[in-house]
């Protein structure tokens, strides 16, 4: 099967007065049709910018400095504004974290849902309205027929996020990018939205890129995961392999630092010391995680490790055999 999306050596940077912010530093990954790929990392690791780069929505003064984004084999980065606009919302849709700021507050949901149907699909208004109500029902908004005439502020946070999902689905996209879609929601509402996304993904056979900081969300939803740190993908694996056998010290550190809700024994958390680097300072020779790493070797300072395969379908950017090092700790203590 041909990949749906192939990101190759993508590099996005922001020139600022304090220097160039290296937000995305040459990342590569693929998304197969119908697949759910997670991108996890903390704030400022470049996960959102890497996704915005795919559909050329990088905010000014940001620019894509290098790389290719192949969607069904065609490089989106060479598209004109007019051409990329046809792809956005049509083949690739995006769901943002904050539905209140992403929806237009002075237009009814009806207007906002029918606009892409008229513009992209060439429907007439009556047909577009019928389709819009159908989509509202698909995302399980009660009383869709009447509620479609409401404004965004008339909806609760969870319902507003459903409207966002409805907007993303209007033109039957092949790929939906979800940028922290549930971070602003309560946990019971988050469960509703994730459940809905999972069912829609299976029913509509669409691929999903799930951007989040929550390892629990990707564990339940994604087939494969990319872990990002300081603009690099530091580990890439199937979901099972990543959690069972993390090969990058950052991934291992994240998994050790989160308390487990299903653990009755009270164990001390092992935090990752220090804090994430200044992105104007990364992109040099050394490994960006080296100052916070618990397994540093001399080479880490001189050479940034490439993302190399460690086993089948599993890549990590580290000079050290983390699996062996973590194993030693288990034996010793």
């Amino acid at each position: 099967m041909e990949p749906l999306l192939e990101v190759k050596g993508l590099r996005t940077e922001f020139p600022t007065r304090e220097g160039v912010v290296h937000a995305v530093n040459g990342i590569s990954y693929t998304v197969m049709p119908g697949e759910a790929v997670g991108i996890v990392g903390e704030s400022g690791c470049g996960k959102s910018i890497s996704a915005l780069s795919i559909i050329n929505l990088v905010p000014k003064p940001g620019r894509i400095a290098a790389g290719e984004v192949l969607f069904e084999g065609k490089n989106l980065l060479t598209y004109t504004d007019e051409e990329i606009r046809k792809v956005r919302g049509n083949d690739i849709a995006i769901i943002f974290q904050d539905a209140m700021t992403s929806l237009n507050p002075v237009l009814t949901v009806l207007t906002q849902l029918t606009e892409p149907l008229v513009l992209h699909m060439g429907m007439d208004m009556a047909g577009a309205e019928r389709r819009a109500v159908e989509i509202m029902e698909m995302v399980e908004i009660p009383f869709a027929r009447t509620r479609i005439r409401d404004y965004p502020h008339n909806f609760s946070g969870g319902m507003r996020q459903r409207v966002m999902i409805a907007m993303a689905l209007t033109c039957d996209p092949k790929l939906v990018i979800c940028d922290e879609p549930t971070t602003a929601l309560d946990v019971t509402i988050q469960a509703q939205i994730l459940d809905l996304l999972n069912r829609l993904r299976q029913d509509l056979a669409m691929a999903v890129i799930m951007i989040t900081h929550d390892l629990g969300i990707v564990a339940g939803l994604c087939d494969r995961i990319n872990v990002m740190y300081a603009g690099y993908i530091v580990e890439k694996a199937t979901t099972e392999a990543l959690f069972a056998n993390p090969r990058h010290p950052y991934t291992l550190g994240l998994l050790r630092s989160i308390p487990r809700i299903n653990q009755s024994r009270r164990v001390k958390l092992i935090p990752i010391d220090g804090f994430p680097p200044d992105l104007t300072q990364v992109g040099g020779a050394s490994c960006p995680f080296q100052p916070r790493c618990v397994y540093p070797v001399e080479r880490c300072e001189a050479e940034n490790p490439p993302l190399d395969p460690v086993e089948e379908d599993h890549w990590a950017a580290c000079w050290v055999d983390v699996y062996a090092e973590a194993g030693k700790e288990r034996v010793n203590g």
């Binding site: 339940g220 959690f243 809700i261 299903n262």
Partner: peptide
């Protein structure tokens, strides 16, 4: 409690 995602794909 059942709504909280657990960072373990096997349990999930």
């Amino acid at each position: 409690l059942s709504a909280v995602p657990i960072p373990d794909p096997v349990i999930e």
